[in-house]
Amino acid sequence: MMETAAFALFAAVTLTSAAGVVLFRDPWHSALMLGVSLLSVAVHYVMLTAEFLAVIQVLVYVGGVLVLISFAVMLTQAGETPPETATGDGEVTGR
């Protein structure tokens, strides 16, 4: 019962943050939500008795991939207009 509750909680966290990744307009917010999603996926690995994979997930994804993605966000969004002044759907500038 406790395990089902934990699974439901972390599944909700995973799916909500994944929806945030694809729905937020600013890629920086998307990167932060991707971090939350990857960490909660690591919790799912622990619940599936894959502790080593959970550690590797945190190390490789959150420590490596997410840092690379945030570097790319910072390098490519430097000249963009801030989101509060963007008009329209903002997709023209690649957001």
């Binding site: 945030g20 729905l23 937020f24 307009r25 600013d26 917010h29 801030p82 989101p83 509060e84 759907d89 903002g90 997709e91 957001r95």
Partner: peptide, 12 residues
């Protein structure tokens, strides 16, 4: 200041 905005999906 930078409250997260959702992307508008009307066109796609």
């Amino acid at each position: 200041m930078s409250r997260p905005r959702l992307v508008s999906l009307s066109s796609r």
